[in-house]
């Protein structure tokens, strides 16, 4: 069962040259957590998300697997963190976005999309296999909705199987 029916094609996207401050404004306005970043040829170049941006605020030693496991001892650092965000706001989306993104294609099986979402998080960007052109996304909501529609379409014969 391919995932094409679960793809949301009408999604908000960002340009890699946009400043982080503007991208944040856009994200708040549209009330989403992540947006695909598309170049002028329509190819996916990364994903800009609130979680990646927050991750960028952490000291390098707290992001590493064998680094600091706790930061609770850093008391009263809110102003310092805000200053880090202030600095990040001046960067471009291309500098801060997640570039190593797990993608899928319209022909990818829904099982595989669910596996990717469980392992790497939602949404999963969908690109054309041969051109890399961005097609849309499959999110947890769209995948669930697609499956619910399939339940509604089940026949008595299907239920017997």
């Amino acid at each position: 069962m391919p995932c094409d029916s679960a793809i949301i094609k009408d999604v908000y996207t960002l340009s890699p040259d946009l400043k982080v401050a503007d991208a944040l404004k856009f994200i708040h306005e549209k009330d989403v957590r992540a947006m695909p970043v598309i170049d002028k040829d329509g190819r996916l170049v990364g994903v800009f998300s609130l979680s990646v941006m927050l991750k960028n605020l952490l000291p390098a030693v707290a992001k590493m697997e064998d680094g600091l496991q706790k930061l609770g001892f850093v008391v009263g650092a809110s102003t310092g963190i805000a200053k880090r965000l202030q600095k990040e706001q001046l960067q471009t989306v291309a500098e801060t976005m997640e570039k190593d993104v797990t993608v899928a294609h319209p022909s990818t099986a829904l099982w595989e999309i669910i596996r990717i979402m469980v392992k790497y998080g939602s949404p999963v960007p969908i690109i054309e296999e041969d051109t890399g052109i961005f097609v849309g996304i499959v999110s947890e909501q769209s995948a669930t909705r697609d499956l619910e529609q399939r339940i509604a379409a089940l026949t008595p014969k299907d239920n017997e199987e």
């Binding site: 496991q69 706790k70 609770g72 001892f73 850093v74 008391v75 009263g76 650092a77 310092g80």
Partner: peptide, 13 residues
């Protein structure tokens, strides 16, 4: 001053 605010006991897991 920021460093003096650190709470070492919070580092104990």
């Amino acid at each position: 001053e920021h460093l003096l605010n650190y709470d070492p006991y919070e580092a104990l897991t």
